[in-house]
Structure formats: structure tokens, C-alpha cells
């Protein structure tokens, strides 16, 4: 169920990117898409009543394996958040420069490239 919602969130983001005319809304759509994927990654490592995957000398191996959450998706999500931040900041920077040049955020008015 929650995975389906994740996919719906992804599609909402895709709708924002493809159908909106305003640059800011396109950027927001992009962010929603990225966050849907991040949420999906985090969910794939989730388990009910899990414990942090940290071992020490007193840890019982069997309960540890049966209860610890998978730490790898969290590392992946951290990386993908950082990448998303890079893309987002570049996107916003270009949007500001575009506003300086064209005086608008509407992509239908930015049509110097054709063909």
C-alpha cells in the first residue's frame, strides 16, 4: 500500500515537470520526484519494530539479524539527497539567471531556440 503511494508521489512529480509552464513549479515537481524515490529507498530498508544496526560485544547475533534494519538504503539515500541538493541548487541558480534575462518564469515565453 505505502509503496503504491510512493509511486503516486513519483507520478505527481512527473506531472509537475511535464505539464506546468512555470519554472518554479517545474523545479518543485523535480524535487517531489526525487523525494518519492528517496522515500522508496528508505522504505525498502524498513522493518516493523527494528533496532539500529549497531553491533557491540554484548550483541546476540540471532536477535540482531532478526531485528536490525538494513543500513545500506540509508547510506544510499544520504548520497542521493546530496546529489539532489546539487541538482536543485544548479537549477535554482539557472532559474534566477533566466529571470534576469527574460523577465519571466513562464517557459512558453522562452522560445529563442527552435527547430
Amino acid at each position: 500500500m505505502i509503496y503504491a503511494l510512493c509511486f503516486v508521489l513519483f507520478l505527481i512529480g512527473l506531472y509537475g515537470v511535464t505539464c506546468k509552464k512555470n519554472i518554479v513549479k517545474i523545479i518543485l515537481g523535480m524535487v517531489i520526484m526525487e523525494y518519492a524515490v528517496n522515500l522508496f529507498l528508505i522504505l525498502s530498508g524498513w522493518r516493523k519494530g527494528g533496532q539500529p544496526p549497531i553491533m557491540d560485544s554484548q550483541t546476540n547475533m540471532e536477535t540482531f539479524v532478526s531485528r536490525a534494519v538494513d543500513p545500506l538504503p540509508q547510506a544510499l539515500v544520504l548520497t542521493s539527497i546530496v546529489i539532489g541538493l546539487g541538482v536543485l541548487s544548479l537549477m535554482v541558480a539557472i532559474a534566477i539567471r533566466l529571470y534576469e534575462r527574460y523577465g519571466t518564469f513562464d517557459i512558453t515565453e522562452m522560445r529563442r531556440l527552435k527547430g
Binding site: M91, L98, R112
Partner: peptide, 13 residues
């Protein structure tokens, strides 16, 4: 330039 930024934004998205 305006065209370059436009192309870059399109490519970026």
C-alpha cells in the same frame, strides 16, 4: 547568454 541558459535548463530538467 539567454539561449545558453535556456538550453542548459532544458537539458537539466
Amino acid at each position: 547568454e539567454a539561449e545558453e541558459l535556456e538550453a542548459s535548463f532544458k537539458y537539466l530538467v
